[in-house]
Design a protein around this nucleic acid. Sequence first.
DNA 1: GTCAATTCACATGAAAGAGACCACGGTCTAGTG
DNA 2: CTAGACCGTGGTCTCTTTCATGTGAATTGACGA
Length: 402
Amino acid sequence: MEQRGLGGFFDSYLSTKPLFRNKAVLQSAHTPETIFHRDREINAIAGIMAPSLRGDKPSNLFVYGKAGSGKTLTVKHVARELKKQAVGRGIPVSILYLNCKLKKIADTEYRLIAQLAREFGKAIPPTGLPTEEVYKVFHSAVDSAGGVIVLLLDEIDELVKKAGDEILYNLTRINDELQSAKVSIIGISNDLVFLDALDPRVKSSLSEEEIIFPPYNAIQLQDILSHRAKEAFGEGVLEAGVLEKCAAYAAREHGDARRCLELLRVAGEIAERNNFDKVMIKHIDTADEKIERDRLMAILTSQPRQSQATLYAVVSISMKKQGMVFTGDVYELYKSVCGRISMRPLTQRRVSDILAELDMLGIISVKVISKGRYGRTREIALSVPAPSLPRMKRILEEALSL
DNA sequence: GTCAATTCACATGAAAGAGACCACGGTCTAGTG
DNA sequence: CTAGACCGTGGTCTCTTTCATGTGAATTGACGA
């Protein structure tokens, strides 16, 4: 219907000078050539991993740092260099990287070991085999590969949270049973406290060495950002102060470099879409809002229906009445919502857990309080600004087809 | 007025069940030579 | 005779339920001043 208009749109889109020269360098999948402000960490990790070049087993290492502090990047970088050296000298070193957070890939004991075995070219079915069997396959694969094997387990805290620390115990002990290979583990985690929850045996062997990544400060972020921006954008596209503002925003959020880059990328996209020839400071504010909005939207729509119904109950109540929302109120409303959409309601026990999960996702914030004689409950508050509540409610209604 | 006991309304933990998915081996069946 | 279909068994995994135990301060009620 609007063909001429659309054609014109594409025309004008193509005729405007693109702001981006290479957008990929701002995307999180991008691996930069050089890593800034992490020299100390790089050297430390390299020092720990170096013995593998002599065929010795490097100490197990535990790497900790907040999100976006460059842990994964740095560790992978060192691993890559190590591998290069090893190949150059004909030393058998294999490095396996595995993100334990990836659903359906490495988030349980079975899947983790199966995935590791697959890395050695073994075919393991996604389910159906006894876990012990998979261990055996993995053992023999590792042993026949020989040499030093470094396992990089990213987001290892997620794994332990979901599957317990037995896996780590088994993995750290695996060397006792191997003839020709040596396995060492590098665990990467956002969560330092998680170490304390581990079985002491596992804890001591996993963290023979520990490296902590401090968050980037605003100046360092700005430095990183400016290097990437130079590649990403054309000459003179960024208004003065844009980088500073981006860095400041991200520094506020515990120095998350990933977020910082995303912010700049989205700001660029917004500017481009609105036919600006510069990325301006105001675009950053818009970008910040947009990122937050998209994140929320993604979380809302990807939740299972039960969580959506629960959240819907929370939103409705907090829109209707002032003050705090409690578990009991939510559960009552939740049950009636279930009735309306003919869904079998879950028990309160489960809903209680769902509320805790929503808290983890950062949509609501809960606090367990005691109201004395009137019992103990969760005090629930939405961590979404009040103006966006109606929108949120609409989205949920739609998702639940209310 | 003070202080310990009580009480509420859930939180929190542990264990176990249901149902989906899958591999493997044995049995049956139909098609082929 | 053989390939493929079709069980039954035994395994993992996720989401729940069930049962049991924990918890922190407002309230209560006994007690002493």
